[in-house]
Design a protein around this nucleic acid. Sequence first.
DNA 1: TAAAAATGAACGAACGTTCGTTTTTATTTT
DNA 2: AAAATAAAAACGAACGTTCGTTCATTTTTA
Lengths: 206, 206
Amino acid sequence: MPVKEKDTPTKGETTRLAIEDAAVNLFMEHGYHATSMRQIAEHAGLALGGIYNHFSSKEELFEAIIIDKHPYKRVLPALLAAQGDTVEDFLRSAARLALAELKSQPYYMNLMFIEFVEFKGKHGASMLLEIAPKVLPVFEKLVKGRKELRITNPVMLLRSFFGMLISFFLTDMIMGNSHLGKLMPKDPLDAYMDIYFHGIIRGKDE
Amino acid sequence: MPVKEKDTPTKGETTRLAIEDAAVNLFMEHGYHATSMRQIAEHAGLALGGIYNHFSSKEELFEAIIIDKHPYKRVLPALLAAQGDTVEDFLRSAARLALAELKSQPYYMNLMFIEFVEFKGKHGASMLLEIAPKVLPVFEKLVKGRKELRITNPVMLLRSFFGMLISFFLTDMIMGNSHLGKLMPKDPLDAYMDIYFHGIIRGKDE
DNA sequence: TAAAAATGAACGAACGTTCGTTTTTATTTT
DNA sequence: AAAATAAAAACGAACGTTCGTTCATTTTTA
C-alpha cells in the first residue's frame, strides 16, 4: 500500500466524528451550557478525558460543529441540484429542497441561536468565509443570466433568499401549532414564496 | 388612610423589579446558564439569598421576565403609532419604528432565542394568546380598508411582516460586520422592505 | 516500536439553593 | 406621636453537586 487511501479513515478521525455527532445532537436538544462534556463522552462511547485528545476545549468543539455541521452543508447540494427554466421555478425548487433539509432536523436552527446568545455570533465570520465562496456564485450566475430579476445585487439576493427561509421557519415554529395556524393558507410556504417572488421578479409595467 | 395607594410601592415590589431588571440585562447579554444568581444579586444590589425571598428559583425568575419584559411590549406601541396614507407608507413607518425599538436593545431578541433553545418555546403559545388579540386587528383593518393589497389574509400579512423584520434582524447580525456587509446596499432595510412591499402591493397589470 | 488514543480518578472553581440569623419595614397598640 | 410587634426582607456562610479540564497511566493503532 503505497499511499494513504481516502476510504480508510483512521481511528482518530472516526472518534472525532463520533464526538461531533454526539455533541451536535445534545447541543441542539438542550443548549450549550446545559450539555456537559460527560454527556458528550457517554453518547460518543468513550471516556471523559478522551475528548481532549481531539478537541482542546468545549468551545473549540462547538466551533468545529458550527462549521462542520452547518445546515448549509446539507442545503448547498440541494441548492445546486435545483432545476427550473425561470428564476421563479429555480428558486422555488431550491427553497423546497432547502426547507425539507431543515425540517428533517427541527432543532438545527438552535445551533445558530446558541451561536447568537452564548457567543454573540463570534464564529459567524469564519463560518461565512467558508460558506460564501460556495453559495454566492449560484446567485451571481442567477443575477447575470436572468434579465427578469429586479434585484441585481447577488449578495442582497442571497441574503433575502435565506432570510425568507429563516423567516418562514421561525414564524412556523411560533405560529404553526397555535390557533393562528388554522387561519393560514393551506400551503404557507407557497404563500410565503409568492410574496418573496413578486418582489424579485420585475413586473411587466416597471 | 383608608385604602392602599398605588403610588407608594412597597419595598418588596421595588426589590422585585430591581432583580428583574438586573436579570433581564444579564440574560440578554450572556444567556441563561452563563448568568449566575450571584451576578444577578450583585447587579440588583442585594445579597445572594435575598433573591429567594422574591423568586423561588432561577427558572421562575426567567419565566417572569419572559412575560414582563417581552419585546412586543415595546414594539406594539410603535406599531400603533405608525402613520401613512398608503399601505406601503404605513408599514414602512411601522417597520422603522419597530426596528428602532429592537435595535435600541441589541440583545433583546436573545430572550426569544433562549426561550427557543432552553425552554423549547414552551411559553410561546401563552405569549401569542396575549399578543395576537392586540396586534391582529391592526392587520385586519389594513386588509379591509386597502384595496391595493394582494394579500387578503390578515394572519398571513401579520406573519410575513414580522417574519420580514426578524429575517432582516438576523441576517444583519450574521452578515452585518462581515466582508459581505460591504457588498450590500447602503440602506439594507430599505432594500429589504422594497422586496417585501412589491410582493404585497398588487401591480398595475395584475 | 513509537505515536496516537483511551482511561478514569482527581482538582479547583462555580453553580443553585438552603438556612439560621439579623435587620428593616409596615402595621397595631399605647 | 411614640412604642411595640409581628411579618417581610436581607444577609452571607455553608451545602451538596456538577462543571471543564488535567494528568499519569494503560491500551490500541499504524
